Simulated assay, not measured.
Amino acid sequence: MQNLVILAGNVGNAPETLTTQGGTKITKFNLATSRPKRDSNGKTFKDENGRRAEDTEWHRITCFNGIAKTVAEYVETGQKVMVTGHIHYTRWTDNQNIERYGAEIIAEDVKFLSYGKSRQNRTGGTQDNEDDDVPF
């Protein structure tokens, strides 16, 4: 069996990078994914304005070494990315001595599906163009 996760969504915060004493770069960011809400009959739920309602989930993404460096340099809040990796479950005791559990996605690949806003402004457009040269 394989532990494989593929997520495509919007970056929710500017990536945060740290370097361990051993020299390992670690970059973390949050990724938002959405899916349509469904009613009890399985039909897409609409809000009072007739717009499709969505459920949004937030995922903690952790990148190491080369991927961490690239993400830290090029990823911005709001940018669309696709992350391929695996789920890692963690357990810790907080400062009130309560045992906590969590999950994070360890990224093995991050593909950029859009430019960040600062690069869009420099290139003069906001549309995605699959012919653009993306340096990653």
Rank of each mutant, 00 (worst) to 15 (best):
Q2D: 13
L4T: 15
A8S: 15
V11A: 06
G12W: 11
A14V: 15
E16Y: 08
L18A: 14
L18I: 15
T20G: 06
T20S: 15
T27G: 03
K28P: 01
S34C: 08
R35G: 10
P36K: 12
K37D: 03
K37C: 08
T44R: 13
T44P: 01
T44C: 00
K46V: 02
D47H: 00
D47V: 00
N49F: 02
R60F: 04
I61G: 05
C63P: 08
F64Y: 15
T70H: 10
V71F: 07
Y74H: 13
E76P: 02
T77A: 11
T77L: 11
G78T: 09
G78L: 06
K80C: 08
V81I: 15
V83E: 07
I87Y: 08
H88D: 13
T90D: 11
W92K: 09
W92I: 03
T93P: 02
T93K: 08
D94T: 05
D94H: 02
N95A: 10
Q96A: 11
E99V: 14
E99D: 10
R100F: 05
Y101H: 09
G102F: 03
A103Y: 04
I105K: 01
K111V: 11
Y115N: 09
Y115R: 14
Y115E: 03
G116W: 02
G116C: 03
R122H: 05
R122K: 13
R122C: 00
R122E: 15
R122W: 03
T123E: 14
G124I: 04
G124S: 06
T126S: 12
T126Q: 12
D128R: 14
D131S: 14
D131L: 14
D132F: 05
D132H: 08
V134T: 11
V134P: 00
F136T: 01
F136Q: 07
